[in-house]
Structures are given as C-alpha cells and as structure tokens.
Amino acid sequence: MFPSSTKLEPANIKTSDTPSGFGGVGNIAGHVLLIALSVLALFPVYWMIVTSLRPANDIFSSSLIPTSASLENYRTVWSTIPIARMLLNTFTMSVLLTLSQLLTAILCAYAFARWTFFADKFLLGLFALTWLVPFQVTMIPNYVLISSFGWLDTMTAIVVPQFASAFAVMLLFQSLKAFPPELIDAARIDGANDWLILWRVIVPNLRASLASLAILLFISAWNEYFWPLLVTRNLENAVVQIGLQMFLTQEGDLWGPLMAAATFASLPILLLYVVLQKQIIESFMKSGIR
C-alpha cells in the first residue's frame, strides 16, 4: 500500500554547540551586534506606538518617552472608522487569497513542471508576461465584469479576480522542476497516480517552500489597497489599508490617529508571528529565502 506521505529527510549534519571561530570575546561581540540590530529593527515599531500616544501638539516631539501620553488617538480611530470590521475584512481577504493562490499555483506549476505538451513553454511565457502587466490595464475591464455580476461592495469582488497569482506559479514551477524525479518514479512503481504523487509525495516535501510562499502571499494580500478601494463603496466592507490612508487628508496628515491605526493593523500580523515564530523561521531557513 502507498504511504500517506513521503518525506525527504535532510542529511544528518553534525553541528557543534559553539560556532567555530567565536571565542568568549567574539561571542559577546556577536551578541552586542545582534542586540544593536534588534534595537534598530524594533525602533520603528516603538516609535509608531509612542507617536500613537502623543497629542496633536506634541506629535513631532523627539523625546523617547511621551510626556503626556494618552489613548485619545486610539479613541479617535475607533470612533471615526470601523477599524475592527476593516481588520476582520482584511484578515478574511488575506486568508482566502493565500489559500486560493497557493492551490492554483500548486496545480498550475505541477502541470507545467511534470508534462510536456503543445505550446507549454509559450503558455508559461504568457504566465510570466501577465505578471508584468500593470494592474491599471486590467482594472476597468475587471471592474465592469464584477459590476455586471452584481458583486460590487462584496468580499467576492475583492477575492475572485486575484484567485491566481503568476508570481506564485513561477516560484513553485522552479521548486517543482528541481524536485528529484527518482522519487516520483518510485511512487509510480508503488502504484500512485498523478493526483496521489502530487499530494502525497511532492506537496509534503515542498512544505518549506509552500510555507514561505504562503507568508509572502499573505503579506502581499494584507497590503492590498487599490483594487479593494475600487470595488468597495461602504467603509464597513473596506480593508484596513484604506482605513490607514484616510488619516492622510487634504486638510493635513493626522499622524497620531494614523500611528494608532497602524498599531491596530500590525497587531494581528505580530500575534501571528509570535505564535508561528518557529515554523516561519524554519520555513525560511529551508527554502533559502532570507
């Protein structure tokens, strides 16, 4: 019987506890450098939170700790835009887009990598070309079609036109091309058909690549602005990037509320990262994307 999944295990690499070339002093220096880089990476996040706590007449103060901290900007955000609803919409959109783009990319890349068929290279080239077509070119035709379906101002309108991603197909195509053909042949000898080979041999072994691709697709979806802006008419159906933009107004940029809204917007991603930290780092290490 064919196993439920077949995994390629990495070769057993021997590692020592202390990296070679690092003595006690080197170790301390390395840590100091890492701490300095961590502070550098975290400072913008800290500054965002500190700014969100400052009143309008103290917003450009350079002091590291706000002298008159208040949650007024958070109250402003909560009362002026439906931030909770926008975050929920953004999360739903990002999950749906990530799953749909992953699924279509797996099937499409598998077809291109596994089989030789009429005009396959030409079709792959067309896929790559669609990646280069600016969104503005397809914007109006897509909008007219969505409008004729009566989907405007719905989650369907935001998600369906972006069901497939050429970027995801191209990335997975490379991974699938590099997949050892011996393993596929072995699975075929064991009696597996193409469908089983994909889901029980290839996908489990591409978990690292798929995880890193999923993260990239999720972040890209989370930052979606223009298409959701075009197809939503009601703020209750809008995404959080539209909410953030609303604080950059004709009557002046409202940095306090903007930073409060940005803090709200980054919380789900931060929480996701904290919960899945180990898996995310592992997947990046394995897939070679740093």
């Binding site: 309008a56 007449n57 917003i59 450009f60 009557e251 002046g252 940029d253």
Partner: peptide, 29 residues
C-alpha cells in the same frame, strides 16, 4: 508640512485647508 507643524519652519505658502491642522499642532507651542 511636518516641519511647520513642529515649529521648525518660519514661513509656509500653502492651501488654507491646512489651517485647522496647523492650529491644532501649534496649540500651546
């Protein structure tokens, strides 16, 4: 715009639409 609101700019030729924004920023400053 930020420099004017922070009090670091002497003169600023701009639309009057920014009046309320600048007034809020200049309050007590």
């Amino acid at each position: 715009q930020s420099a004017m609101a922070a009090g670091n700019l002497g003169m600023y030729l701009q639309t009057s639409a920014l009046q309320n924004y600048l007034l809020n920023a200049s309050k007590d400053k």
